[in-house]
Design a protein around this nucleic acid. Structure first.
Lengths: 351, 351
DNA sequence: CTGAAAGCGCTTACAG
DNA sequence: CTGAAAGCGCTTACAG
């Protein structure tokens, strides 16, 4: 009986190639004893027929078969690690295997048949921890009937892509309000790109809090660039070297905040005595800085879990209420913020 | 021809159960038309023989089929992340898919048939980032013909397990020699458990360097516990509160070092002016402390890559030259170490 | 409830 | 380099 689902068998392909099943089998298994022309012909027909071979009943049933593919941008870091932890946790609970994309190249250079291979290997959905999913990837996944969920994209609303994020605007507001409540009035911002709606929301939350409190926000107190350690050092340096330097800085990520702390230390300024610093994310970094970092927690693990469950729901053909969900951020107060010093902001050399 | 690798087939199980292949097939597929007693018998024999069914040539061919399972202990952290990055990189180069174990429970509580399920899902080998692979896991993997490679185990030589580590003794020596060269004579150690050969090697490397230089190593300068941030705070605090506190501390991990830096900061001591600190690992943490951390680099990415290639070699049935390989550590000098201050070690309040 | 028989998809030793 | 033939592991319609 031929496979009901219309999947190609060796004999389908052999017939259409006009060769024997034996020969097709050899090509599939990469045996050397096949003529070059024959091999090329058979290979093209295998691809045309989307041949994926006989399914293994064992693998079908196995909880170890990876159902979810996690796609990353660049290297793993403290941020993506927490998200992945959440995906793994939720996968473990659901009895679902999770594979991490081994990206030989960048997203731009996915191997041919990438999405089809994922489907053939048993994936049911893809979770991407990326700023912007390339449209080529989205098209390929859609052809392979693999739903995609993006975690914390730069511009969640712009694309018609299912995504999970957090309340960036509220987080930025909470950070600034915390600093205002500590008596700070000169509050700088060092954050991510202005092309990112995500980072814009954080910055505008900060601005909204300051404006509501009647506190001015000079242009040179707002610095946007990338969100890495080096950007924190550069942005922190620029602000701390101002004639009227801020007494507090809200950084758009924990890494950036670590850079700001280092910029302060390099200038002999103490955190939090001379400078309060608030980060964003609450990755492992926030626990390890000196002092430990006050930060706006993004529930990254939870976001990973929501992404996994959403992905499974899409794979099961369910409809979603909304294609974008945001989880609440929360201010975590640690040791990097303190009440504004009397006379704070003076040059430490004059003390 | 029966499978060479000794895997059970339906007929193996049928013979040992004294029933037909048909009946065994029905049990495997959960068909209802099998007597309860027969089903129970067959099921127990399937388990006994570790039956995993025939391999799917389909999934065989797909580069997306996860061939390697990475097993973790507890949550992902900066350390395991770098290793996994190395595994992913090497997997990408080899065109090999990598899955991360979704451990619902701890290692102790692997689900029944764990290793068998992995084999059925196409895994060829397992890489464990764990202190000690439980013998139950090792037995299960061996029955499922899945080779195991352990990365940086506590006691690499003790077990007959293939493992990849780094030159811990040499690393400890390099750290201490660096501090000695900077003029330090009161050099403390805050490191991992004394039950761990890995941590012992680091400590003895440190001791060897000090003894070779004729520098005494008082007992209360050597503190062992766990290797986390909190242990660094506690260990750092204990040493910094000594009547004659060290002017430099070698910490057994970057996290511990971050804790020592925090203990110093909490006491108003500046790093590196009042206290030099050397870490171990060179994870992302080392870049983000203030000041950036001088540390002994373990080539964690490379170790992940070597583990992957070793695992594939074992899966292909190759013999290894050695069941344990160590990659070289290397001292990375950053900002947390400096020449001993003239008068260094005095209470800062008296300056 | 059980299993002999037929048949599928695939692989391989071997003849040409 | 190619494929007919034998055979493996598995499934299923069917006889008892």
């Amino acid at each position: 009986m031929p496979p009901r689902d219309g999947r190609a068998t060796l004999s389908t392909v052999a017939r259409s190639a006009g060769v024997s099943v034996t020969t097709v089998s050899k090509v599939v298994n990469g045996r050397p004893d096949v003529g070059a022309g024959t091999r090329a012909l058979v290979e093209s027909l295998l691809a045309q027929h989307d041949y994926i071979g006989r399914r293994s009943p064992a693998a079908e049933g196995s909880p170890a078969t990876a159902r979810i593919e996690v796609v990353l941008e660049g290297d793993l870091n403290a941020y993506s690690t927490k998200i992945i932890q959440g995906v793994l946790d939720a996968g473990g609970e659901a009895g679902i295997g999770v594979a991490i994309g081994t990206q030989a190249g960048a997203d731009a250079s996915r191997p041919r048949g990438w999405a089809r291979d994922l489907a053939a290997a048993g994936r049911r959905a893809v979770i991407a921890v990326v700023d912007e999913p390339p449209s080529t990837d989205r098209a390929a996944l859609s052809r392979a009937h693999l739903p995609l969920v993006v975690i914390a994209p730069l511009n969640p609303q712009r694309e018609r892509v299912t995504s999970v994020g957090s309340t960036n605007f509220a987080g930025g507001m909470a950070a600034a309000q915390h600093l205002l409540a500590l008596g700070h009035r000169r509050i700088g911002y060092v954050g991510g790109s202005s092309r990112s709606a995500r980072d814009q929301a954080r910055m505008h939350g900060y601005r909204a809090a300051l404006e509501a409190a009647g506190v001015p926000v000079p242009d040179d107190y707002q610095r946007t660039g990338d969100s890495r350690y080096q950007d924190g050092i550069a942005g922190g340096a620029a602000q701390l070297d101002l004639p009227e330097r801020p007494t507090a800085v809200f950084a758009g990520s924990d890494e950036t905040a670590a850079g700001v702390i280092e910029a302060a230390r390099a200038r002999g300024l103490r955190v939090p005595d001379d400078l309060s610093v608030v980060g964003f994310d609450d990755t492992e970094v926030a626990r390890l800085t000196s002092p430990p970092l006050t930060t706006v927690r993004q529930p990254l693990r939870e976001m990973g879990g929501v992404a996994l469950r959403t992905a499974l729901r899409l794979a099961a053909g369910e409809k979603l209420d909304s294609h974008h969900v945001e989880l609440a951020t929360e201010l975590i107060v640690r040791g990097s913020t303190a009440a504004r010093q009397v006379g704070g902001g003076a040059d430490p050399a004059t003390r």
